Simulated scan of single mutants.
Amino acid sequence: MGRTVYVHGNFVPEEDARIGLFDRGFLFGDAVYEVTAVIAGRMIDNDLHLARLERSLRELGIALPLSRMEIEALQSELITRNGLKDGTVYLQVSRGEADRDFLYPETMVPKLVGFTQAKTLIGTRAQREGIAVDLADDPRWRRRDIKTSMLLGQVMAKQAARARGFDDVWLVEEGLVTEGASSTAHVITADGRILTRAASRATLPGCTQRALARLCETEGLHIEERAFAPEEAQEAAEAFQTSASSLVMPVVRIGGRVIGDGKPGPMTRRLQTLYLEAAGVPS
């Protein structure tokens, strides 16, 4: 028996799930999505994810298909029906269905789908030992602040990085790191400052990043929001990336340069602990 998924108002077995041939998410990537972490059956930072979903839809002129309360209820129902303990819950909203045309009718009705994915999120080898990230030119469109389903640039960058022996990839534009292909990039300077890019159209506003920033403010840790070059990242004392599916992930190599002593540093370890404790998970 497969998973139960949500498709256009109904919970159905995954093998029976269907989307229409003329769904604009399928034809044009005209859709947005969100991924929320689930730990011990509980959603983490979901308020931030639903707020970002609503913002992305608003930027594209797509109506929210359900109220935020109703969306949270269907997420919880997916978790319950699938007995999900640890993993993610995925949502995608497309503009709707219409015969293929770049121009779309204003009367379109948005389509919502959702599913869960079981995954170990904490205590992984990558979180214990850190990962290596490649550096690649950023091939994406200019509205990266909208979390659209158009991910071919990220797919190709990640695939190329894997072929080169890396675990992930950070993207670079005009000599500066924008972000990870599916994460927010951070480095820590020798004097303990945490650097990450400020919110703009060049990057996606990370929900895990925002939650971690709140914790840093409470703990008196300094976050400096500014862009940094790959060379500065490679000279950093520590590095890490954040996302819903990897939480706070140590980075121990960037391109051909080992970061620090090649092991997750003390500040990164502290941030991992702070985040898990705030999520109600023993570190």
Rank of each mutant, 00 (worst) to 15 (best):
V89G: 04
A37G: 07
R128Q: 10
Q272H: 07
L271F: 03
Y275Q: 02
V251K: 05
F102R: 04
L152I: 12
T88F: 09
Q241F: 12
V281E: 08
A213C: 03
M43G: 01
A190Y: 00
V35F: 07
A227C: 04
D168S: 04
V109L: 12
A160F: 01
A51L: 13
L274V: 10
L171K: 14
P205E: 14
Y33F: 15
R210P: 00
E173L: 15
G192K: 01
I71Q: 13
E224H: 06
T148E: 05
A157C: 14
D137L: 13
G123E: 11
L48Y: 12
R144S: 15
R3Y: 06
L204R: 09
R18W: 04
G61C: 06
E14H: 06
T107Q: 13
D134C: 14
L135N: 10
T88E: 12
I223Y: 06
Q241G: 11
Y104K: 12
D168V: 12
A132R: 14
G262N: 09
L152G: 00
A202G: 03
I254P: 07
V38F: 08
K147P: 02
R201S: 13
T189L: 10
M249E: 12
G153Q: 11
C216Y: 00
G123Q: 12
G130P: 04
L53N: 06
D134L: 06
Y6F: 15
R257K: 13
D16Q: 12
L195P: 00
R214M: 06
R270H: 04
R210N: 03
R162A: 15
L64D: 01
D23C: 10
T120V: 12
I62A: 05
S182Q: 12
G260Y: 04
A190N: 01
G255K: 07
P110F: 02
E217M: 05
C216F: 00
L60K: 09
D86S: 13
R95C: 04
